[in-house]
Design a protein around this nucleic acid. Structure first.
Lengths: 157, 157
DNA sequence: TTAGGTGCAAATTCTTTGCACCCTG
DNA sequence: CAGGGTGCAAAGAATTTGCACCTAA
């Protein structure tokens, strides 16, 4: 699944701006790593990004890829699927419920909400395969982390 | 976040039934491991389950915990948060979109759907912290895996 | 009794870190 | 030219596997 060139360019531009603003260096590696994630809808993992970038920069190292991906996530330019930097977590609650996820600390909070339980699945999605569950993922920052962030930002200024 | 005793008992009973039906042994370890996941809403990771179970069975091993958790997942008695058995995956698509996840192979497919873009966040969730994104997660089995499963089940009979 | 389950320890796989050199700003 | 960024190699986590013994059915 490729992303249209125009959209990719827009994303790259956003990255250049964000990097400038944050005082980060725009290295060859960083550009290629972001490009790799920005130009596909495949949700690559770190290793897939690494393999892709290596075709153009044969000397990149996997650790640079990791460092850059997390950096991009801090900048808000890429997101992770599921809870951030977390190992697999388990859940035995099969009554319909939804999740609030804190993108900072990985907190997951269940909640119930009737409106969300009644969502229809669009036909083109049903075509992808039998659906077993639909749930809503609300992402944000929990109160505790929000407090921490506010303090940090404040102290910088 | 504790789960009411009555609900826990219901879940344990479901496990006993599923195990019997699948011809699995109901060992002390399995009961305690499932109990540990079934009695909390904390979405523990494998290590948290291990630590909990160890208080009652000091000799359990972490690998038994892993094996049992995946077994429970196969039985459909526990679910994992995010894509199954997967490492972290990255996404640079910030236009509003939603995911279809295959619980077998980890396939993630983006899709857009206006109805889902307009969901309101209930006030008690807003109270948890500032919300940055709301998205819908549709879980199921992709066509390819569904085909594989059907073949396997068929051949057993 | 006996096949499936467990514990142990070692192997893998994934991710992070320390450090010396390099390159962007 | 200075300080952040990179590559390398090695450390650290997280998860899986092989094998001999154990135990639920």
């Amino acid at each position: 699944m490729r992303v249209p060139d125009q959209e990719v360019e827009k994303r790259l531009e956003r990255f250049r701006g964000a990097a400038r603003e944050a005082g980060l260096k725009l290295t060859h590696q960083r550009m290629e790593i972001f490009h790799e994630v920005a130009s596909t809808e495949d949700h690559p993992d770190a290793d897939a990004v690494f393999r892709g970038v290596r075709e153009r920069i044969p000397t990149v190292s996997l650790d640079t890829v990791y460092r850059t991906l997390w950096l991009l996530e801090d900048l808000g330019l890429v997101a992770t699927l599921g809870p951030r930097r977390e190992r697999t977590r388990f859940d035995a609650n099969f009554t319909s419920h939804h999740h609030f996820l804190c993108g900072r600390c990985g907190l997951v909070r269940d909640f119930e909400h009737e409106e969300y339980d009644m969502l229809d699945v669009p036909p083109e999605v049903k075509r992808l395969g039998p659906v077993s569950r639909v749930s809503v993922e609300v992402r944000g920052v929990c109160r505790e982390c929000a407090g921490r962030l506010r303090r940090k930002k404040g102290s910088k200024r």
